[in-house]
Structures are given as C-alpha cells and as structure tokens.
Simulated scan of single mutants.
Amino acid sequence: MKPLRIAAALPVAAVLLLTACTSSADIEAEARADSTGSSETVLVVDTSPEQADRVRTDEDPDAAELVPADIAEDGVLRVGITGAGDPPLGFLADDNSTVVGSEVDIAQLVADGLGLELEVVNTTWEGWPLGVQSGDLEAVFSNVGVNADRLQLFDFATYRQGIMAFVAAPDTDLSIAGAEDISGLRIGVGSGTNQERILLDWNAQLESEGQEPAQLEYYVSAGDALLAIQSGRLDTYLGPNSNAVYQASVGDVEVVGTVNAGWPNTTYVAATTLKGNGLVTAIQASLQHAFDDGTYEQTLERWGLQDEAVDAPEINPTVAS
C-alpha cells in the first residue's frame, strides 16, 4: 500500500521509483508516522497487483443482454489500457507487470455489469486504434478524448470530463479561473497540446484588452516542469488534471485552477469501441448501472478524481468541429 497525502508532489518518475524500491510494510509504517499530528487526510492507494480494495459491482442482466454475441461468446471483455506509467490512470503495480489505476477500475465496473471477465491488455497510445480496428481489443479505457476525427472510426461511451489543471508551489496565492488570472505569469506547457491552445487563446484575449500576456515556456516532461516550479523558475504548469491530482498528493505542488480541455467547449473521456459493432450500447448501459448504484462515484473517489465526474454516460456526444 502506498500513502498519498492530498495537496503534496514529487515528479512521477520519483514516485514510481519509490514504489519499486520500498516494501509495502515500510510504506505503511511511513504513512502512519507522517500522518501523526497532521490534520491532512491521507489517501492510501493500493499499488499491489491483487487490488483487493478495488470497487466492484454486480451484473446488470439488462446490460448483459446488449453485448454482441460474438463478444459475449468467450465470457471475456478484452480491454486495452496504456500502463507505461501514467498514474493514477494506468500504471504498473508493485510486480512491474500488472496494470492498475483508475481506468482499470472503471473497466472492471463495466465488465462486472456485463457479467464478463475483465482481461486487461497493456497497450500503447500509438497502438490502441489499430488494436480496436483489428479486433485484438474489444474496448479501450485509456483517457481517450472524444473528437470529430475519432467519431468517424469509433463509438464512445463517456465516463469522465477531460480536465486540465494548473499546479503551483504549495501555499501560493495563485487562483486561476480564466485569462485574467494568467497575466504576467511564467507558465509551463507542452507544445502542440490542448492546453497550449487554451493558453494561446487566453493570451490573445489579454493582448486585445491591453493586458500583459503570460510567458509560455515549453516542456516535454511534466517532471521537468515540476522541478522548475519547485526552483521558482515557473509560476505554474498546465497539464492533465488526473496527473496533477496524483502529483499533488505525493509531493510539493498544489492544484490552483482547472479548465476543460475543450475550452470554451466541453471535452469528454470515453470508453472506445469499434464503430457500429454494437458494443458501445452495452458499455453505456453497464456504466449507467455503476452510476446508479454508486460504484462509479466510489471509484473516482478512490483515485481523487471526483472533479472529473459526469452526470451520466453518453454515447457519441456532440463535439465542436
């Protein structure tokens, strides 16, 4: 078990190194020692391959009946998840082999509701589209955002909002909700990302109003950006909220603002299936079952991702062109 304290961050690489080199007993002892006399809530996340604390649900017969016969035949739902090291979404457990994380947990709820055994395939971001199209993967739960191009080839059932988060040094007075709050700041961002587009649009707005734009500094590695924050070379960094929540729980940054990745529109993260094969309808029904019985909410809370919750799962939501 690995202790995570909300509002704290080491770079992800350091977190994973700690996991690999420290025994569960040592970690739990450290958690108890660190939490003594502290008013902060300590969130203990299970990094074991067994995942005994994973939230589970029961079968929904109505949803199970919707599974296409060729997929239901072997009693298995084969799901692709990128497990190369992207906590809390998908990363390798203490055995350096088993993929665990919030995406696995959501996939497990869906498989449970459909009465199927979950088979997790550790895939790559580059490889999942071909995996779905070839039939090697029946679905993907891997932080896939719904966009117009993907809707041409795949069907989607939404289960999270695509949220980006600003992180900064602890106890900062920063609070970022819009363009007016970034004027004059030094902001780290990845080139060619949704978050860069948002910041460029906000800078254009500031300049049109005669205000000083933010200074954007480009980073390939989020870990490098976090080090720059800790050393005072950056005021803030804008990246995926899921990663920010995890990093804030284990080190020395805090989340100071969020924005939807599709700003000014809304972007969703969704279960991804082959276009037209019918599986998405069953997945949406199974997700609805988990929404209704509370296990969806419990699963997001397990990983600190409550802010990314959606009101209900939706098939192929309308997206801005």
Results as ranks from 00 to 15, higher is better:
residue 2 K to P: 01
residue 5 R to W: 14
residue 10 L to M: 14
residue 14 A to V: 12
residue 15 V to H: 10
residue 16 L to C: 03
residue 16 L to N: 04
residue 18 L to Y: 13
residue 21 C to G: 13
residue 22 T to F: 05
residue 24 S to V: 15
residue 26 D to V: 15
residue 26 D to Q: 15
residue 27 I to N: 10
residue 27 I to Q: 15
residue 32 R to E: 11
residue 32 R to P: 04
residue 34 D to G: 10
residue 35 S to R: 12
residue 36 T to Y: 09
residue 39 S to H: 10
residue 44 V to N: 11
residue 46 D to A: 07
residue 50 E to A: 13
residue 67 V to W: 09
residue 68 P to I: 10
residue 69 A to L: 11
residue 70 D to S: 12
residue 71 I to C: 04
residue 71 I to D: 04
residue 78 R to F: 02
residue 85 G to V: 00
residue 91 F to L: 11
residue 94 D to Q: 12
residue 95 D to H: 06
residue 99 V to E: 02
residue 105 D to K: 07
residue 111 A to F: 11
residue 119 E to K: 13
residue 122 N to S: 12
residue 124 T to M: 06
residue 124 T to A: 11
residue 134 S to P: 02
residue 138 E to H: 14
residue 138 E to C: 04
residue 140 V to N: 00
residue 140 V to H: 00
residue 140 V to P: 00
residue 142 S to L: 13
residue 146 V to N: 01
residue 146 V to P: 00
residue 150 R to G: 00
residue 151 L to E: 06
residue 151 L to M: 15
residue 153 L to Q: 08
residue 153 L to R: 07
residue 157 A to W: 03
residue 159 Y to I: 08
residue 159 Y to G: 05
residue 162 G to M: 08
residue 164 M to P: 01
residue 165 A to G: 08
residue 166 F to R: 05
residue 170 P to K: 11
residue 171 D to C: 01
residue 171 D to W: 04
residue 173 D to T: 09
residue 183 S to I: 03
residue 183 S to K: 08
residue 185 L to I: 03
residue 189 V to T: 10
residue 191 S to N: 05
residue 191 S to R: 14
residue 196 E to N: 04
residue 198 I to W: 01
residue 198 I to P: 01
residue 201 D to F: 05
residue 202 W to N: 00
residue 203 N to L: 05
residue 203 N to F: 01
residue 205 Q to G: 10
residue 206 L to H: 03
residue 212 E to H: 08
residue 213 P to A: 05
residue 214 A to V: 03
residue 216 L to F: 02
residue 218 Y to H: 12
residue 220 V to P: 00
residue 221 S to L: 14
residue 225 A to L: 06
residue 225 A to Y: 10
residue 229 I to L: 01
residue 231 S to R: 12
residue 232 G to Y: 04
residue 235 D to L: 04
residue 236 T to I: 01
residue 238 L to A: 02
residue 244 A to S: 13
residue 246 Y to F: 12
residue 254 E to Q: 14
residue 258 T to G: 02
residue 261 A to M: 06
residue 264 P to K: 11
residue 264 P to M: 08
residue 265 N to T: 12
residue 268 Y to P: 00
residue 275 K to H: 13
residue 277 N to Q: 13
residue 281 T to P: 02
residue 285 A to E: 13
residue 285 A to Q: 14
residue 287 L to E: 04
residue 288 Q to L: 14
residue 294 G to R: 09
residue 294 G to S: 09
residue 297 E to Y: 07
residue 300 L to Y: 06
residue 303 W to P: 01
residue 304 G to W: 07
residue 306 Q to K: 05
residue 309 A to I: 06
residue 310 V to L: 02
residue 311 D to W: 00
residue 313 P to T: 02
residue 318 T to W: 06
residue 321 S to D: 14
residue 321 S to C: 10
